[in-house]
């Protein structure tokens, strides 16, 4: 009998809904922009909103939760904002989504700031009784979606520079008590030339912190079939994969197996339609025998901010119930 699956939040979660309570963060942004509330008052509202999102994931039955990346303007500029040598500029489309991120412009030697992400990770860890996952956009995606104007950075230099800076701060974040660290690298599907840099970065994380946190590499928003074998070489504990772009991916995994435990992103994080047992269980039956017996989990294909809030909740509730039913049956 295979080890049981667990149910895990992917990463981001909607920060707006229809009710007054669900609209309070949006209103707080407007009030802050107009100077009607102080930074501290805004932070208090944001904190309470993050707490709601954590509770929502817990009440849906997820085993691993995130803070929904509620504080993030987007997955690129939030990570690089306030770094020395980086300006945050205009909007660009995030892959093929209808979501736009602000592009970082690299104008000088970059340096990560003190206290980077410390408070938000601390808040997450101290507000959940479940396993807390810290999500971080990886150096390949950050470098590739930035505009590099500083002449000292050629080819992959900037990616390596980001990796060095991130590594210098990860220790202080993991010491806060997160159970899992997830590196998101959607860009690796579009460009595999920086795989060696990514491999070195992940290797350093795992070497230093494998006894403290489970290291996950997440790849999404693109067809993973062509890079699946490369991903198997990455020094991580688990791979979290988006299954929605490739009909071939389940066949490849069934054929080649996986040496690493997998996060099965089988529930579509970008569509409101709810998957049912008939959609998911046949794939689990085929794939799980080809995976390590421990550490596999079910998730959505991407974060859920692309869905309306009520639909996102339905999705994680369904995710948790499918895992519970699978575990009961197996």
């Amino acid at each position: 009998m295979s080890e049981k699956l667990y149910a895990a939040s992917h990463s981001h979660y909607p920060r707006i809904g229809e009710s007054d309570a669900h609209l309070r963060l949006r209103r707080a942004y407007h009030q802050k922009d107009k100077g009607k509330i102080t930074d501290q008052e805004f932070l208090n509202i944001e904190d309470s909103y993050v707490q709601d999102i954590i509770l929502e994931q817990e009440s849906a039955g997820l085993d691993v939760v995130t803070d929904g990346l509620i504080r993030w303007r987007d997955s690129i500029s939030h990570v690089l904002q306030n770094w020395k040598g980086v300006h945050i500029n205009g909007l660009l489309r995030f892959f093929d989504t209808n979501f736009y991120f602000r592009q970082p412009i690299v104008v000088d030697d970059v340096k990560i700031q003190d206290g980077w992400l410390q408070r938000e990770v601390q808040y997450l860890v101290s507000h959940t009784s479940k396993r807390a996952k810290f999500v971080l956009t990886g150096p390949v995606t950050l470098a590739s979606l930035s505009k590099i104007q500083a002449s000292q950075y050629k080819d992959g230099d900037f990616c390596e520079e980001i990796a060095r800076n991130l590594l210098s701060r990860i220790d202080s974040l993991l010491s806060l008590g997160v159970s899992q660290i997830q590196i998101d690298e959607p860009y690796i599907v579009k460009d595999q030339s920086l795989l060696p840099v990514l491999k070195g970065f992940l290797g350093d994380i795992r070497k230093s912190y494998h006894d403290r946190a489970h290291v996950i590499l997440s790849v999404h928003t693109g067809d993973i079939a062509s890079v699946y074998s490369d991903l198997q070489d990455m020094p991580v504990d688990s791979l979290l994969l988006d299954f929605t772009y490739s009909a071939k991916l389940p066949e490849i995994i069934e054929r080649d197996g996986s040496a690493k435990s997998l996060g099965l992103g089988l529930l579509d994080g970008r569509n409101t339609k709810l998957e049912n047992k008939e959609d998911i269980f046949p794939i689990l039956e085929k794939l799980l025998p080809r995976l390590p017996s421990r550490g596999n989990f079910l998730s959505t294909s991407t974060g859920l901010e692309y869905l309306p809030r009520d639909r996102a909740y339905n999705k994680i509730e369904r995710l948790a119930s499918l895992v519970a039913e699978w575990n009961n049956e197996s």
Binding site: N98, T272, R309
Partner: peptide, 17 residues
């Protein structure tokens, strides 16, 4: 008519279903 989905920053639109 669907619920609100973020477009960027603090901008949202209703995405149809």
């Amino acid at each position: 008519v669907g619920g609100f989905v973020r477009s960027y920053g603090n901008r949202y639109y209703r995405k149809p279903i």
